[in-house]
């Protein structure tokens, strides 16, 4: 009890000290974000596929909709996690799914690519604790023939 009180006091102190820190919205400790498909190491001929985004013990809400324990998905392609106390960039390496999408059609050129999901709140700022998936690698083989999509 005492330690938790102390911890709270410290955290409060930290919060007051850091004016630059954004106010990350809370998420339950058991909430989890994961990539349902593709699997880590998956070889995807043609490089066109639907990514399926999974979320446990929390909800999806479109960007701009403020509701506790909800957020929307962001897909990080060939990039590392951005700063977790700031708005997620919006570019070809950071795809936003602000309508509340849980699947998206992706097209990637031949080569190895990394994919990672990061959930963020109505204002595109990650939560506390941050909800991100493991970073997976997929392989798009060089196109030898005119192949269609896998899925």
């Amino acid at each position: 009890m005492q330690t938790s009180g102390l911890l709270t006091a410290c955290l409060a102190g930290l919060a007051m000290m850091g004016p630059a820190l954004a106010d990350n919205k809370p998420m339950p400790d058991n909430a989890r974000v994961y990539i349902i498909w593709p699997a880590d190491g998956q070889v995807i001929a043609g490089g066109k596929f639907w990514i399926r985004m999974g979320l446990s013990n929390a909800g999806i809400a479109p960007a701009g909709i403020e509701k506790q324990y909800t957020g929307h998905h962001h897909l990080l392609v060939d990039t590392d996690l951005p700063p977790l106390d700031d708005v997620i960039p919006n570019d070809k390496n950071h795809l936003h799914f602000g309508l509340g999408q849980t699947e998206a059609r992706i097209e990637l050129p031949p080569g190895r690519h990394t994919l990672q999901l990061l959930l963020a709140d109505d204002g595109h700022v990650p939560h506390k604790p941050p909800l991100y998936s493991t970073k997976i690698t997929i392989v798009v083989p060089p196109s030898t023939s005119r192949e269609g999509s896998t899925q």
């Binding site: 809400a61 479109p62 999408q101």
Partner: peptide
């Protein structure tokens, strides 16, 4: 869900 979004 495809081609549609989820909202509370």
């Amino acid at each position: 869900t495809r081609n549609f979004g989820v909202a509370p």
